[in-house]
Simulated scan of single mutants.
Amino acid sequence: MKVAIVTESFLPRVNGVTGSVCRVLEHLAAHGHEALVVAPGPAPSSYAGARVAPVRGMALPCYPTFAVGVPTRRVTAILRDFGPDVVHLASPLVLGASGLAAANRLGVPAAAVFQTDVAGFARRYGLRGADPIIWWWLRRLHGRAALTLAPSTPVLAELERRGVPRLARWGRGVDRARFHPSHRSAEVRARLAPDGVALVGYVGRLAAEKRPGLLTRLVGIPGARLVVVGDGPEEGRLRRLMPDAVFTGFRTGTELSELVASLDVFVHTGADDTFCQAVQEGLASGVPVVAAAAGGPLDLVRPGVNGLLYAPDDGGELRAAVATLVDDVRTRRRMAVQAAESVRGRDWETVCGELMGHYRDLVHGAADRPAESAA
């Protein structure tokens, strides 16, 4: 099969969209399929054997480190030359609209992967009241795709409520070699908590859409030390507000694997996550998770089994949930075992196999094709 992936974000920018696209490309290469990537530049010339065709990118004014591709009809020429069987639109918004228009012009089915809560993102950056026009655009965009794939049941329900047609669920995988309890490190724990206190950790971007300011509600919990893994525009302010917390900066590879597995409690503050890969990686590492009861974490966290949920805007409830796990070592250890068990069967090989099934259905006409072209 020949698969063209048009993505709003790609390397060297690291985020959930980029990560899932990379895993899909690796799967396609491993199984003998041919792939092409259209992404905002700058970008590498290839990845996992797939050629990357860069288009002009534009940084968002409110988030300079995040760029989106500028719409261009050149995408049609790129796809025509490649001749794909299916077009994969990764979190389509701007460049994805060009990819969808190109697919429809060429008569190629397109699968649109809904991955970013754009309306929630806009609200976090002060664009209040923009929900109606954002959802009008998303409904128009996804309504012209042959299939929209939602990452979690709450998002699937929201898309149905918003009138988006032709929906299916496609979750995200986790690398169970990279994120596993075996990476728990006595050395890391001794360095971060020489006095033996519980390590309470956050892993992710330090940016408004992740609401990291809620971490300040965890300051001063007896018997706990806060570890913050990641960087972003909020880092300076958080360092001032939490002088006793450990800030590791952005980490990858073995270092990240050891940091996550060495935590005692994994905290997630975001409330607009359509899936939340960070939560799944924490669970795979054998760490009970405390997350907001909203979006993707509702599919991942089973309260009292592998973690706890708190009302999204209730910092007091967040603090109480974390303090409960810090105080109760026995419950924490029980949840740690069940956390790792809860992600069994969610490896990327399995999840990408499900995606290939959706591709095959599209290619063989199992999904209704939209008659109208996206302009």
Rank of each mutant, 00 (worst) to 15 (best):
L256M: 09
G253P: 05
L214E: 04
L259Q: 02
D272M: 12
E258K: 07
G304E: 08
V219T: 15
D313I: 14
H268L: 05
D264T: 12
V289N: 00
T248G: 03
M242H: 07
G236K: 15
T248H: 06
D313H: 14
R211W: 08
V287N: 00
G295A: 00
A190P: 11
G286L: 04
G270T: 11
G304P: 08
D231G: 12
R239L: 07
E234R: 13
A261Q: 04
G315T: 10
V246L: 09
G196K: 10
V219M: 12
E209R: 09
V219L: 15
R302D: 09
D299S: 04
E235T: 12
P303Q: 09
A320I: 14
S257P: 05
A293N: 09
G295Y: 03
V246Q: 01
Q277G: 06
I221R: 01
S285V: 11
V289F: 01
V229Q: 02
D244G: 13
D264Q: 07
R240W: 12
G253F: 05
R240Y: 11
R189S: 09
G196I: 14
P233K: 15
V267A: 00
V203S: 02
A291Q: 00
E258S: 08
E258D: 05
G296I: 11
D195W: 11
L218I: 09
R302V: 15
G307S: 08
G282L: 03
L199R: 05
A193Q: 14
L241F: 11
D264N: 07
A294G: 04
V289S: 00
R191M: 13
G236Q: 13
F247M: 08
H268D: 06
L318P: 02
G295I: 09
A224F: 03
G220W: 07
P297E: 02
G296W: 06
T252E: 11
L226K: 01
